[in-house]
Amino acid sequence: MTAAEDDEEAAKRAAERRARRLLGGVSLVLGVAVVGAASIVLQVTAGERTARSNQQAPRVRADHVAPIAPPMPSKYVTYELSGDNGARNITYVGNELTVAQEMSAELPWSRTLEQLTPSSGYFSISAQNPAAGSLTCRIVVDGQVVSQKSTTVAKNVVTCSHSR
Rank of each mutant, 00 (worst) to 15 (best):
residue 84 D to W: 01
residue 71 P to E: 12
residue 75 K to A: 03
residue 31 G to N: 04
residue 38 A to Y: 09
residue 22 L to P: 01
residue 17 R to W: 05
residue 16 E to P: 03
residue 102 E to C: 08
residue 25 G to Y: 04
residue 32 V to S: 10
residue 106 E to C: 07
residue 74 S to M: 12
residue 26 V to S: 13
residue 92 Y to V: 03
residue 90 I to V: 15
residue 68 I to G: 03
residue 16 E to D: 13
residue 46 A to W: 10
residue 46 A to G: 05
residue 17 R to S: 09
residue 23 L to W: 05
residue 22 L to Q: 14
residue 92 Y to L: 13
residue 44 V to R: 12
residue 49 R to M: 09
residue 54 N to L: 14
residue 83 G to A: 11
residue 27 S to I: 03
residue 46 A to D: 11
residue 65 V to F: 01
residue 56 Q to M: 02
residue 99 V to D: 00
residue 35 V to K: 09
residue 100 A to D: 03
residue 100 A to R: 09
residue 43 Q to Y: 07
residue 54 N to Y: 09
residue 99 V to Y: 00
residue 79 Y to I: 09
residue 37 A to R: 13
residue 65 V to I: 06
residue 86 G to D: 06
residue 78 T to V: 09
residue 34 V to K: 05
residue 71 P to N: 06
residue 64 H to W: 03
residue 105 A to V: 13
residue 73 P to G: 10
residue 90 I to Q: 12
residue 78 T to A: 11
residue 25 G to N: 08
residue 83 G to I: 11
residue 94 G to A: 03
residue 104 S to E: 15
residue 100 A to C: 02
residue 42 L to H: 06
residue 38 A to C: 11
residue 51 A to V: 06
residue 70 P to F: 12
residue 74 S to Q: 12
residue 86 G to N: 08
residue 70 P to Y: 11
residue 57 A to F: 10
residue 77 V to H: 00
residue 39 S to Y: 09
residue 67 P to W: 04
residue 36 G to T: 15
residue 84 D to F: 01
residue 60 V to W: 03
residue 72 M to F: 15
residue 103 M to G: 06
residue 81 L to R: 05
residue 53 S to M: 02
residue 26 V to P: 11
residue 39 S to H: 05
residue 59 R to M: 01
residue 94 G to K: 02
residue 98 T to M: 03
residue 102 E to I: 15
residue 101 Q to I: 11
residue 33 A to W: 06
residue 53 S to C: 00
residue 19 A to Y: 07
residue 105 A to I: 10
residue 88 R to S: 14
residue 51 A to K: 12
residue 82 S to P: 00
residue 92 Y to R: 10
residue 21 R to V: 13
residue 65 V to R: 01
residue 53 S to L: 02
residue 65 V to P: 00
residue 59 R to C: 00
residue 55 Q to V: 00
residue 93 V to G: 04
residue 54 N to M: 11
residue 63 D to S: 09
residue 49 R to I: 08
residue 41 V to T: 12
residue 68 I to H: 05
residue 53 S to D: 06
residue 67 P to A: 13
residue 40 I to R: 15
residue 22 L to H: 12
residue 88 R to N: 15
residue 17 R to K: 14
residue 61 R to C: 02
residue 43 Q to V: 06
residue 41 V to C: 06
residue 53 S to I: 01
residue 57 A to Y: 12
residue 101 Q to L: 11
residue 43 Q to H: 04
residue 52 R to H: 03
residue 15 A to E: 13
residue 84 D to A: 10
residue 102 E to Y: 15
residue 79 Y to W: 10
residue 24 G to I: 01
residue 48 E to L: 11
residue 45 T to W: 04
residue 56 Q to A: 04
residue 29 V to K: 11
residue 63 D to G: 03
residue 96 E to M: 05
residue 18 R to S: 10
residue 55 Q to M: 00
residue 61 R to S: 07
residue 48 E to W: 08
residue 21 R to G: 14
residue 45 T to A: 01
residue 34 V to Y: 10
residue 76 Y to A: 03
